[in-house]
Design a protein around this nucleic acid. Structure first.
Length: 290
DNA sequence: ATAGGGTTAG
């Protein structure tokens, strides 16, 4: 191409990244910077998302430098993407520094920061931020609530869980699959498998993850039989189980001492469902038989 | 043909 626009450059950089050719990805990016004039506001965020998805902090930092050199750091959209990149690369302090320096933060920026803390294992701080966000008069949407619910699940705090559920009810969010599934997980990890089941029963369009979360919940609450029943129900509904389902199921069997059932599952997972046993499945089997 | 954030094991 004699004429390349920002899209052609981005597609090429992203394409190399997806193909796993980081050298070419890197080289092409540098060439982009050398050859193009001022990049538009979409090119650098796009490349930052590539860095985030590949957890390539090295290239992410390089792009950050380019953002600074073009004076784009005051752009809210660009900056939020940087926060997300650093957070997902587990450099939460750097993410927080950028976040704190932003004069105006929109809902997505808050959500990215809250989620960053959850993923980094600091659920307490994620809930603190959630309160600060509301003090800032921002109204969370469903995606924000998914991250908050996740934070609460990690904390295992039932008091908080009830507050958050109450809040979701007051702003009248209908539960979509993802938020509903997150809430099942939250209640289960906060200790109430029954409340989790109530949410589960209220979700009309369950996907494989919804079933998986509920099955796992019965598993770590020692109710292996119920986990198995649910698995049968899931099969009846025509949902195809994946490898994670079988991790939860085998775990459930080992914690309830259901040796025969566990062996049976281990046999059919490959023969009937084409799921190849991995180290986690085998660990559960060792637990079950040992 | 780029267009910011979200769900299961570990």
């Amino acid at each position: 191409m004699r004429e390349r626009d920002p899209v052609s450059w981005s597609v090429m950089v992203g394409g190399f990244a997806k193909a796993g050719d980081l050298d070419s990805c890197f080289t092409t990016f540098r060439e982009l910077i050398r050859c193009s004039s001022q990049p538009d506001n979409y090119t650098l965020p796009f490349i930052l998302r590539v860095c985030r998805d590949m957890m390539n902090l090295l290239m992410g930092s390089l792009v950050h430098g380019v953002v600074l050199s073009y004076g784009l750091c005051s752009d809210q959209f660009v900056c939020a993407t940087l926060v997300d990149m650093y957070a997902k690369c587990r450099v939460i302090e750097d993410a927080r520094k950028l976040f704190d320096d932003m004069p105006k933060k929109d809902l997505i920026t808050w959500t990215v920061m809250i989620d960053g803390y959850v993923e980094c294992g600091n659920a307490t701080e994620s809930l603190v931020l959630f309160d600060q966000m509301r003090d800032d008069d921002l109204v969370p949407d469903k995606i924000t609530m998914v991250t908050v619910v996740n934070g609460c699940a990690k904390l295992g705090a039932m008091q908080k869980a009830r507050l958050i559920y109450g809040y979701i009810c007051t702003i009248k969010f209908s539960l979509n699959v993802i938020l509903g599934t997150a809430m099942i997980d939250m209640y289960a990890k906060c200790g109430s498998v029954d409340l989790a089941r109530e949410i589960f029963d209220g979700i009309r369009e369950k996907n494989v993850i919804t079933w998986s979360v509920m099955i796992a919940a019965y598993g770590y609450h020692g109710q292996g039989k119920k986990a198995l029943d649910l698995f049968l129900m899931m099969s009846t509904c025509g949902i195809m189980p994946n490898g994670i389902n079988f991790v939860s199921l085998l775990y459930a069997c080992s914690h309830a001492g259901l040796v025969d059932e566990g062996l049976e599952l281990f046999n059919i997972m490959w023969d009937k469902y084409g799921v190849r046993p991995d180290v986690k499945h085998c660990t559960c089997m060792v637990d079950l038989l040992g």
